[in-house]
């Protein structure tokens, strides 16, 4: 099966991550090769300490790999400066955290708009308002725009966080245990939102240790001791 470069959202080649402390060297990830195509819904699961979070951090440019190459939409992002990494995160990556990471002092609207305020293009107020409302509509939260995050339930907060992740039209959504801090009902709602977004074309990469939710992804990767255990059939065919 032929793959056009245009279809590849992100690609990692031989990526390794070593943490060094005074006493020891920890190989968190070794020789990770991973390709995620546009429109994919990938889950990464594995036991505690297998390197899930490290992998997600590297994917999200929150940390830099020790070796290997990493491309987002064909652009080499393996060796970026801190500010370049910020810019790439802002335009290409949407984050959804386990603990939501909303800023308490800002309203729901301003939380969602935050990435746009750091955007290279400096969109005007009108554009921001339009885009924020679009995203809030996607997560069905248009009725709470002037509230502060701590006035909302956990599920609502996570939906706001999803809207924030969508606001710059990123190449991929990186989702870290989205239901970890939620009850099962709210967790299900959040998972439904993600599934719907993927149906509408959003690329998603999710880290979770919950097998029920991992199964909801189209492609399931299993990580053990810093290496990918299961390679999806699609990739093996290549």
């Amino acid at each position: 099966m032929n793959q056009s470069i245009k279809d590849i959202a992100i690609k990692m080649t031989n990526v390794s991550k070593v943490f060094q402390t005074e006493a020891l060297e920890t190989h968190a990830l070794t020789d990770i090769n991973l390709t995620i195509n546009k429109g994919d819904y990938v889950s990464i699961s594995g036991p505690s300490g297998c390197g899930k979070s490290t992998l997600l951090s590297l994917l999200g440019l929150l940390d830099m790999p020790t070796s290997g190459q990493y491309f987002i939409e064909g652009e080499d992002v393996s060796r970026l400066s801190l500010d370049q990494a910020s810019e790439t995160r802002n335009s290409k990556i949407g984050f959804i955290f386990q603990s939501f990471n909303l800023i308490d002092e800002l309203s729901v609207f301003d939380n969602v708009a935050l990435p746009l305020r750091y955007h290279r293009d400096k969109p005007d107020a009108e554009t921001i308002k339009k885009r924020v409302n679009e995203c809030l509509a996607q997560v069905s939260m248009t009725h709470r725009t002037s509230h502060k995050p701590n006035q909302l339930s956990g599920g609502q907060q996570q939906r706001i966080a999803i809207a924030r992740a969508l606001v710059t039209n990123p190449a991929i959504l990186l989702v870290d245990e989205p239901t970890g801090n939620l009850d099962s009902k709210s967790g299900d709602q959040v998972m439904d939102v993600l599934a719907k977004l993927n149906e509408n074309g959003t690329t998603i990469c999710m880290v979770t240790h919950d097998p029920r939710y991992a199964d909801m992804a189209k492609i399931q990767l299993k990580l053990l001791d810093g290496a990918i255990l299961t390679v999806p059939s699609l990739q093996i065919a290549n």
Partner: peptide
């Protein structure tokens, strides 16, 4: 610190 991390993750540059 946590807020700063979040802002950085969302694309804030050092200057910001």
């Amino acid at each position: 610190r946590f807020e700063i991390g979040t802002r950085l993750a969302l694309g804030a540059k050092r200057r910001d």
